[in-house]
């Protein structure tokens, strides 16, 4: 396994589905404390890349190293989550039949084995942490209602809150502002910047205004590999990027 001081080191990963190459020798490096935006047309392989990092999909080849010492290819989703990688799905996924507060409670960092949860009692430290999280994601007044009754945007925030509750080092956030109003999008950008003060974040998003608002390095994916990398202005001036976006 490679020696690296990067928080996330992805090198040359390829993934095929029945002969179709979803990822083609993709490489990506994320520094500790960095926020990175990933853009790319539909089917570029953004979600598949997150699947590989989180252990859902095994790459056919290539290396994925987390925190300089964990070979993620050898671990499953649960192990990787416990190492400190949180993931928000493209389609907001929260526990609809639990209250907002219970959603966060289940996500809170802590023991997760059967006999731990069977006899778990809520600690005061947990109550405090829940209060902070609810405030941060702006759902304090909704704490007691079922997550299924939240609006689409609120569900996205709740899911981000659940990632935070896990206390991860790295957050993978897949299309957080899809279907949000402009005001909600702005709040989300603020939330992610706040989160980025203490953690690394990878955001996949199509919304260019949102990406601009984040003001971070952008990686453009196309047909399973990196097409360009740099500031948003740099990559939007790149003729190959323009071609990929306009050629569709």
């Amino acid at each position: 396994m490679r020696e690296t001081d990067k928080l996330l080191y992805v090198d040359g990963i390829s993934v095929s589905f029945d002969g179709f190459r979803a990822l083609n020798s993709l490489s990506l490096m994320i520094d500790d404390g960095e926020m990175r935006a990933i853009i790319g047309p539909n089917g570029a392989g953004k979600t598949t890349m997150m699947d590989v990092i989180t252990g859902k999909t095994r790459p056919d080849s290539g290396e994925v190293v987390f925190d300089g010492r964990h070979d993620l290819r050898a671990l499953d989703e649960t192990d990787i989550a416990r190492l400190g990688i949180g993931r928000k799905f493209q389609r907001p996924t929260v526990f609809e039949n639990h209250t907002v507060e219970d959603n966060l409670l289940l996500a809170l960092k802590g023991k997760r084995r059967v006999f731990d949860t069977l006899f778990a009692r809520r600690a005061t430290s947990e109550t405090t942490r829940l209060k902070d999280l609810l405030e941060l994601i702006g759902l304090g007044t909704q704490r007691g209602i079922l997550a299924g009754r939240l609006s689409h945007g609120q569900k996205q925030w709740l899911e981000i809150g659940m990632l935070l509750a896990q206390d991860p080092k790295l957050l993978l956030v897949d299309e957080p502002v899809a279907g949000m109003t402009d005001a909600e999008t702005e709040t989300t950008a603020k939330l992610l910047r706040e989160i980025n003060k203490t953690r690394s974040v990878i955001v996949v998003e199509h919304d260019m205004n949102f990406v601009r608002e984040l003001g971070v390095t952008v990686t453009v994916l196309h047909e399973g590999s990196v097409l360009a990398e740099g500031s948003l202005d740099q990559v939007s001036a790149n003729p190959r990027v323009v071609e990929v976006y306009l050629g569709r």
Partner: peptide, 9 residues
Amino acid sequence: SRVRFLGYR
């Protein structure tokens, strides 16, 4: 899958 990605088995 949400449960799994939260670190439960």
